[in-house]
């Protein structure tokens, strides 16, 4: 299968998995935005939503695609990075950074930060929800809301989230556009549109996700309580 080994196909895999993750982030954010509702309504709505997701067969399939995408995206990135190590030679004096954005050159580092974040994130919520002991709310849904709120009690945990979301933001800022290019959108007009769209998308996702822990922390434990 020469086709699958080629540099372009490997990048296509990165692009497809990356774009799926982008799509997933939208669903995830829409769910999380419920946390911005007044506390009692937020709890009810968020827990109902979480329960809905875990029961639905359609969502199940999506979640398997999600797991695959995450692993494939990371593994492929590792493969590509290792191969590129062999194709390059170091300069004694290097000022090439003038020619491109820092985040476009450091997708690997941003991605690694995101991977570490995901481990924490999965451990604290996904694992707890799936395999942990968890109280039920008055509607009989697992009370994930309590867990979430509790997690954002400490300011350093909130800080980790915010920093990770910025890493995500920069990762998306390059990743979204890059993925669409890799898939072959070459028309100058549409390419320019996608670039703008990708920028707005990245800002929305970053701010959306970053605001939630801050809001929860401030309203439940901080100044606004």
């Amino acid at each position: 299968m020469n086709f699958l080994k080629s540099t372009l196909s490997r990048k296509n895999l990165m692009a497809l998995t990356g774009l799926f993750l982008c799509f997933f982030l939208v669903i995830h954010l829409l769910g999380n935005l419920q946390l911005l509702l007044p506390a009692d309504r937020a709890a009810e709505s968020f827990n109902y939503y979480s329960n809905l997701l875990s029961g639905n067969i359609f969502i199940k399939i999506i979640s398997y695609v999600l797991y695959f995408s995450l692993i494939a995206h990371a593994a492929d990135a590792l493969y590509i990075t290792l191969r590129n190590k062999r194709t390059t030679v170091k300069y004694a004096y290097d000022n090439r950074k003038q020619a491109s954005k820092w985040y476009s050159r450091n997708m690997g580092i941003l991605g690694t930060i995101l991977l570490i974040f995901l481990v924490i994130h999965f451990k604290d919520f996904w694992y707890v929800y799936k395999f942990g002991v968890i109280p039920y709310d008055k509607n009989g849904n697992k009370d994930l809301y309590v867990i979430v709120v509790h997690a954002f009690k400490s300011w350093w945990y909130v800080l980790i989230y915010i920093l990770s979301m910025f890493a995500l933001g920069f990762h998306l800022l390059h990743g979204f556009k890059s993925a669409v290019r890799t898939l072959g959108l070459y028309h100058p007009g549409y390419a320019a549109f996608v670039q703008k769209f990708g920028m707005i998308y990245s800002y929305v996702i970053t701010i959306g996700f970053a605001v939630i822990p801050v809001y929860v922390h401030l309203t439940q434990f901080g100044l606004w309580n």
């Binding site: 080994k5 080629s6 540099t7 062999r86 476009s104 997708m107 890059s178």
Partner: peptide, 18 residues
């Protein structure tokens, strides 16, 4: 051409646009 480009040992394109 792509397959030859790969065989020659050039790296992946990361779209940094440099």
């Amino acid at each position: 051409m792509v397959s030859r480009m790969d065989e020659e040992g050039f790296g992946h394109c990361s779209n940094t646009e440099a």
